[in-house]
């Protein structure tokens, strides 16, 4: 399967994602933000980092870059698109996903491992997980506080477009297990067609038991199959 990782000035998780993809047998290419042509891709990953120094709003400038026009076209024609952390912020700024990512409620940059509950496993990114499984991934962000209007939140719930929610190790989802203030503890959402996933946690950091755990592996192997 062919994957492309988009690289912006300020991306810093691009190599981690590329390493994870290659380890899991993707044929990966790195794509510079100024490029006008996207290599043939089954999966496009927009990685984490601080594209354009988070100027104006996180992801706002990257969303207007050359290559993003191609990403939007590919996404609209069904290509799988995964936005992780800053990549999620960029997807929101392009309008491919709805809502907004505000500053963390406690105003602190949060870097820690958190538990996540798989809310929807009926999609190309999560099918190797079991519904309501608890996984442990790392988060590292300053603006991860997902916000959306009430009617859109209802749509996310009704159409089963919430992929992950923050929880504790026993699966409890409430304010005490919400690290950043996200509405309904949302950690990752899908678009209507379920070919685009935006998530704040970093699955690429959890693909090797030697340095972390392997809870992120299934996300990538779900895409492969």
């Amino acid at each position: 399967m062919n994957s492309s990782v988009i690289v912006f000035p300020g991306s810093n998780c691009d190599r981690d994602v590329a390493t994870a993809l290659t380890k899991l047998q993707f044929k990966n290419k790195m794509v510079w933000h100024k490029d006008n042509v996207l290599p043939k891709s089954d999966l496009i990953v927009i990685p984490g980092g601080f594209s354009y120094g988070d100027y104006l709003r996180s992801g706002a400038i990257a969303a207007k870059s050359n290559i993003l026009k191609e990403v939007v076209k590919a996404a609209n024609s069904g290509c799988l698109v995964l936005g992780i952390c800053n990549g999620f912020q960029i997807l929101i700024e392009t309008g491919l996903l709805q809502g907004a990512l505000l500053r963390n409620k406690n105003l602190k940059f949060i870097s820690k491992d958190v538990h996540l509950k798989i809310i929807n496993n009926n999609n190309n990114f999560c099918k190797k997980y079991k519904k309501n499984n608890i996984i442990n991934l790392n988060i590292a962000h300053n603006e991860g506080n997902y916000f959306t209007k009430k009617d859109h939140l209802k749509e996310l719930e009704d159409k089963d477009l919430i992929a992950f929610k923050y929880c504790n190790k026993d699966g409890l989802v409430n304010e005490s297990t919400n690290p950043n203030g996200s509405i309904s503890n949302i950690a990752g959402i899908l678009n209507n067609k379920k070919n685009i996933l935006g998530m704040m946690p970093h699955p690429e950091r959890m693909v090797d038991n030697l340095i972390s755990n392997s809870d992120g592996v299934e996300l990538f192997t779900s895409i492969l199959n």
């Binding site: 104006l56 709003r57 207007k64 700024e93 907004a100 505000l102 916000f147």
Partner: peptide, 8 residues
């Protein structure tokens, strides 16, 4: 188009 995120 750019300066404002009209959602928030």
């Amino acid at each position: 188009k750019l300066l404002v995120n009209l959602i928030i």
